[in-house]
Simulated scan of single mutants.
Amino acid sequence: MILEGFYQVSNTTLAGDEAVTTLKINQHHEIYKGHFPGRPVTPGVILMQLFKEEAERIFDRKLQLVRADNVKFISVCDPTQDNELILESHITESGEFIKLKGMAKNSVGIVLKINSLYKAG
């Protein structure tokens, strides 16, 4: 896990190809000291990494990002305003590849939409 200490999984619900995971974000994590002092914002690359780590946890294997399409950052994720993040994912597995279509939301609304492809490593 690259994001050690950044978040905790509160709950995960799996139903077929659908996964919904609730995360509690650590607003005091080191990342926020540089991004940005006095106005913490979760970096977009970190939001993308959350989906990868969640897929790794669900499938219990390491994954490598092959491609990310239609990555859309919709709003700012400020952990001091709302430290809960919900990841909704549609995940399909085909051989050594895992395709994920996801949306990250907080109480304000949609934060990120992503379509990604991972290879099991």
Rank of each mutant, 00 (worst) to 15 (best):
V41P: 03
L65G: 05
R61W: 04
D17F: 02
N11H: 10
L14A: 14
D17V: 04
R61Q: 14
N70R: 14
R57A: 13
I110M: 07
L117N: 04
E88N: 12
F6S: 00
V76Q: 09
F36C: 11
T80F: 05
E30K: 15
E18N: 14
A15R: 06
P40Q: 08
E93Q: 12
N83V: 04
V71E: 02
S94Y: 09
K101W: 06
T80A: 04
E53R: 02
K113N: 11
I114C: 09
Y32M: 02
L117V: 10
I98T: 02
T12A: 05
I2G: 01
N83K: 10
Y32L: 02
D17K: 07
Q81C: 13
D17N: 11
N83S: 15
Q27N: 11
S116Q: 10
G109D: 01
R61T: 14
Q49K: 03
V71D: 04
G44Y: 11
D69C: 08
T80P: 00
D17C: 04
L47R: 00
I58G: 08
L112Y: 06
L112T: 12
R57N: 12
N70G: 11
H29P: 09
A120K: 15
N83I: 07
K24Y: 07
E30D: 15
P40S: 08
E4K: 15
T42G: 08
F36M: 12
A55V: 15
Y32V: 01
R57E: 03
V66M: 14
E88P: 02
E18L: 14
G95F: 05
A68I: 09
R57S: 12
E93S: 13
E56W: 07
I74G: 03
D17H: 05
L112W: 07
L112A: 07
L65I: 15
I74L: 09
G16S: 10
Q64H: 13
E54R: 06
T22N: 09
L47K: 03
E96G: 03
M48I: 12
E56D: 04
G44N: 11
K52V: 10
T92W: 01
T21P: 05
R61F: 10
R57L: 12
L85D: 00
Y7Q: 07
F59C: 08
T80C: 06
I74T: 12
T92S: 13
V108Y: 06
V9C: 05
C77T: 03
A68V: 08
H29G: 07
K105G: 00
V45Q: 02
F36T: 12
N11Y: 06
P37A: 10
L3G: 10
E4H: 10
M1Y: 05
K24N: 11
D17T: 07
M48T: 09
L63I: 06
G44I: 06
G102W: 00
V45K: 04
Y7V: 05
P43D: 00
L87Q: 00
K72Y: 02
L65F: 08
